[in-house]
């Protein structure tokens, strides 16, 4: 895994953590059938926090962030997003999903729609934005991720890095207050990882609340204000990046870090 991801200077002026709570998870448990995937998760995320979630494969990182926008259902405990507690109530789910954006490892762009249509679909059908306005918003965010000239192409015509940036723009078009990333760079070639990470850094610089599952430890060091280590469905350790990398407390974290950092 790459240690340093970017050489650019990071502007920390807007990366402020407020007192407002964005996500609160209390004693949350989840099972797949009889398999206990998540055990007693407690986590509070304040607005403006950039959290990196790390841990070995199969430790439940994806499941955890997928519970936050209810792609997965939890069986006990509470998840409160922006003051709304997650339940099976459709209205609740609608509200939370329009507040929380998500990017996936495999981008999951809609291949039958153009880049622009990918970005305007949800604003038009969910937010009921007039088409003109939705297009303006989409172009604004496509410019931000630096691919406005590809707007009328189809996802299949773009490189992986470009597709992931479109996926980020597509989420941003819904003006989310929280962004979830599930290994956004794991499916990318090394030279494309940087362009996606740069986009994510810009997002962080604007004060977006972010929860990222990633193996990019350089990104964690530079951007995150907190790193969470998960193993076997539990949060084993969480700390500021500096402490987390230089002074890990649990044995499992040490083992994981030595494997992932290769020394």
């Amino acid at each position: 895994m790459s240690e340093l991801t970017t050489d650019r200077q990071i502007d920390r002026s807007k990366m402020t953590v407020s007192d407002e709570i964005a996500v609160e998870i209390i004693n949350m448990n989840k099972w797949y059938g009889t398999f206990h995937v998540l055990r007693d998760i407690n986590l509070t995320v304040n607005s403006g926090e950039r959290i990196v979630i790390a841990g070995p494969s199969g430790s439940g990182k994806s499941t955890l962030i997928r519970c936050i926008n209810r792609l997965e259902e939890h069986q006990s405990g509470k998840i409160i997003v922006d003051g709304t507690e997650l339940s099976s109530d459709l209205k609740n789910i609608d509200k939370i999903r329009s507040d929380v954006g998500m990017c996936f490892q495999h981008f999951n762009l809609f291949p039958h729609l153009t880049i622009l249509e990918n970005c305007t679909l949800a604003p038009i059908w969910v937010r009921k934005t007039p088409r003109k306005e939705a297009i303006d918003t989409a172009m604004h965010f496509l410019e931000k991720v630096r691919i406005p000239d590809q707007a009328n192409k189809y996802p299949g015509q773009l490189s992986g890095g470009q597709q992931q940036r479109v996926a980020i723009a597509r989420s941003l078009c819904m003006r989310p207050r929280i962004m979830l990333f599930d290994e956004p760079t794991s499916a990318l070639d090394p030279e494309m990882i940087k362009e996606v990470l740069d986009t994510m850094i810009e997002l962080a610089e604007e004060g977006m609340t972010m929860l990222c599952v990633t193996h990019e430890m350089g990104f964690a060091r530079q951007v995150a204000n907190r790193v969470i280590f998960m193993d076997q469905g539990q949060i084993v350790e969480q700390n500021e990046p500096e402490e987390f990398f230089n002074n890990p407390k649990s044995e499992r974290t040490k083992l994981f870090l030595s494997q992932i950092l290769g020394h």
Binding site: N69, L71, L90, D94, R97, S98, V100, G101, M102, F104, N108, L109, F110, L121, A122, W125, V126, A167, R170, S171, M174
Partner: peptide, 9 residues
């Protein structure tokens, strides 16, 4: 999942 995450029913 991507469509659901965007809030589509």
């Amino acid at each position: 999942e991507a469509a659901a995450a965007l809030g589509l029913r």
